[in-house]
């Protein structure tokens, strides 16, 4: 390593690098300059150091002590901030336990809807929508992957749909459908409950995302797997359901769970249509009480669902990675 660097002074210097006439831009080392070629190292000896230039990481007992100290310091800082006099309005406005309780159970006499009851609707909506999305998206993905000539226009339609649904904000579609469709005065269509419009919009938007996830999964299954299955006499349908789809879903399960978490959160957008779900109820409570602790309790409810879901997703991802690593050594 040191060789080229040491030899450099003897080599004819390129014009720019003349000592004394160094230009401002020429200070960075050229391709020949070698980091280890400091003047202190004797010729021919490789200046290799195994000592880290960084402070060594604390290990064992020292590490435990260090992590405990830093954690305590962090928690202390947060408690000090929240408990300080200056944070009084924040505590009262956002973290008021009494107000949280009022928002959570509701108070019909003053028109306050229950955030708790509303959240049940959020959960129902996300579960029903997810079930429909999982089926519908698979159809869309299969349509995009088919090479059947008759289905060509449908394939084009599927592409146009996924582009549109993924490219437009969910809230925009929500407003469009939620307020637009009733104004059309279509028999049977325009007179539905806002929950139905909301569900339709969520399914519409998320089917596009999930279809793309499925498509990636289906493409990740090697063609040889399909040929092996067909060679055993399995029909194309059985091959899809028993061989391709299980592998495809396994490969994209984390992505599917991610999208489900997202869908769960986006049920909050339904509040724009005035549906009495958690966020809308919290809004009402906030307006009546002039206190926004209702939003806090709504957030907590969402987190109670989404955090376990994301942890579960992480676990599955790790398990998959470990299995793949085990597979390579076999």
């Amino acid at each position: 390593m040191a060789q080229p660097g040491v030899a450099q002074p003897g080599v004819a210097q390129p014009g720019v690098a003349q000592p004394g006439v160094t230009q401002p831009g020429a200070s960075q080392p050229g391709p020949l300059a070698v980091a280890g070629a400091d003047p202190g190292s004797p010729d021919g000896e490789l200046p290799i150091s195994l000592f880290s230039s960084h402070r060594p990481r604390l290990r064992g007992r020292a590490g435990t002590v260090a992590s405990t100290l830093s954690t305590v310091a962090m928690i202390g800082l947060i408690v000090a901030l929240v408990a300080s006099n200056a944070a009084g309005p924040f505590r009262n406005g956002f973290l008021n336990l009494h107000q949280m309780w009022i928002a959570f159970v509701g108070d019909p006499s003053r028109g306050i809807l229950s955030v708790g009851k509303g959240f049940v609707l959020n959960i129902w909506l996300s579960l029903v929508c997810e079930a429909i999305v999982l089926v519908l998206a698979l159809g869309i993905a299969s349509l995009r992957l088919t090479r059947e000539p008759v289905l060509l226009p449908f394939r084009a339609l599927a592409i146009a749909y996924t582009d549109f649904a993924r490219g437009v904000p969910v809230i925009l579609v929500m407003l469009w459908v939620g307020f637009g469709v009733p104004s059309l005065n279509l028999r049977g269509v325009s007179s539905q409950s806002p929950v139905v419009y909301a569900g339709f919009v969520l399914v519409f938007s998320y089917s596009a995302y999930v279809a793309e996830v499925y498509r990636a999964g289906l493409l990740s299954v090697p063609r040889a797997q399909i040929q092996a299955a067909r060679s055993l006499g399995l029909s194309s349908r059985t091959t899809l359901y028993r061989v391709v789809l299980p592998q495809a879903v396994r490969n994209v399960l984390p992505a599917l769970l991610n999208d489900f978490t997202s869908l769960q959160k986006d049920t909050a957008i339904v509040s724009t249509l005035g549906v009495a779900e958690a966020v809308h109820s919290a809004q009402i409570a906030g307006g009546v009480e002039f206190n926004y602790s209702g939003f806090t309790i709504a957030s907590i409810l969402f987190l109670l669902i989404t955090i376990p879901l994301t942890r579960y997703t992480d676990r599955i991802m790790n398990r998959d990675r470990n299995r793949r690593l085990a597979g390579t050594t076999a």
Partner: peptide
């Protein structure tokens, strides 16, 4: 019927192609 052809005709591949799941 190609499925019937394959039912009576076994095929073993260079890369095994066992179903990993």
């Amino acid at each position: 019927d190609e499925d019937l052809v394959r039912r009576h005709t076994g095929m073993v591949f260079q890369s095994f192609n066992l179903f990993p799941h």
